[in-house]
Nucleic acid binder design. Structure first.
Lengths: 207, 207
DNA sequence: ATTGATCTTGAACGAGCGTTCAAGCGTTCA
DNA sequence: TGAACGCTTGAACGCTCGTTCAAGATCAAT
């Protein structure tokens, strides 16, 4: 029964992932889950609650994956594999290349309050996940340049999100892979000088 | 009259930018433009056509801005100013930090065919804009590392998009600025070795 | 065979959607 | 003065939305 519910949530996830919350109708969901209206409401209470369940499960899954990356023998290689996996899924499910949380972010102003909170907290949880990956890399001296761990985690999450957005519109696997490896290079390259609190020029000179 | 129409399109842009296409109702639009239903339809034909107009004007504006960056005396400084401008708009209009095209990308599967095409072509036009910026930098020998100009343009556009997405959820101006400067550094840092067509390991070693 | 508990069904509800259009309006020109 | 014009109005249309609920189906226990 629990297993059956999980299968149903997966199918609902697919729909929301492809079409977003607002554009996905309960009738779409009813058709995909092969359930009549009453049954959907008996199981999931409402469209809002179902969406929350979908988001929650997605975050849990991503957290688990990030944890396994951090715990891997070679975290850098595991990180690369994680990127490649997430970003180069088959063209048939290209919409899955975009992070579900980021996709939902696009309509956050129109979502029920509970989902809004789930998304914001989910982003923070994933940031914490990236932070543990950064720590794992740091513990193995894989990072040559010293920089605040939380800043590096933010940056890494941002690169991850950016690449996924990019890949959701481009099918060029070669260029995408190059850009993944560029991220892994820049992960270890220098950061801007932050010794002065306000710097509005860069090292190549203004005017 | 043309001026009046432009003002109306600006107001509609604000709405679509904040709430997206699907969640923005014609009644929202009518209220914001202070027009009755018939007047809106007399001017803009349909919700779809109005949205297309909004997207088209947005792309034109971004193209003009990118061109002025490329033509600037110091393109690198202009690029930085462009990033800072786009990404650190006031908290009151935080939704404008996200690129309108990227936001629309999130619901592209549910949009009218014409808008879908406008978005895809718009992304390409902006990529071309970034390409001319890259060329301007290259012409002034601001880029130390040799790499395909179109790949660098894709990368730059991706960084721009990523930072805007990031900033739409974070209000930390300091960290955001650091990440902008990190992009400007990485713009000149080395790229992965692409001499072998297929490389599934990185320079720090697999397994 | 009968009861009671649990799950399923699908017609139907009110609300909101994008859109239309006959009627009303002020202005122009004969 | 009055006919003709373009612009504005807002009630209303057909449709789809999320959701409900009385009635039916299923099945274990008596």
């Amino acid at each position: 029964m629990q297993y059956e519910s999980d299968r149903l949530v997966e199918k609902a996830t697919d729909l929301f992932w492809q079409r977003g919350f607002n554009a996905t109708g309960m009738r779409d969901i009813q058709a995909r889950l092969d359930l009549r209206p009453g049954s959907v409401y008996a199981r999931f209470r409402s469209k809002d609650a179902l969406f929350e369940r979908v988001l929650g499960d997605y975050v849990k899954h991503m957290q688990a994956t990030l944890r396994s990356v951090a715990d891997a023998e070679n975290p850098l290689a595991a990180l690369r594999a994680f990127f490649v996996d997430s970003i180069t899924t088959s063209s048939a499910h290209r919409y899955k290349r975009q992070c579900l949380l980021v996709k939902s972010l696009a309509e956050i102003d129109t979502l029920p309050a509970a989902s809004r909170q789930t998304i914001e907290q989910g982003m923070q949880k994933l940031q914490a996940g990236f932070c543990s990956v950064v720590d794992a890399l740091s513990a193995q001296d894989r990072l040559s340049y010293p920089v605040r761990r939380d800043l590096l985690a933010k940056w890494l999450q941002n690169q991850f999100v950016g690449l996924r957005t990019f890949a959701s519109t481009h099918d060029d696997l070669v260029d995408t892979t190059i850009m993944i490896d560029k991220v892994l290079l820049d992960l270890q390259s220098p950061w801007p000088d932050t010794s002065s609190t306000e710097q509005h020029t860069n090292q190549l000179g203004d005017k």
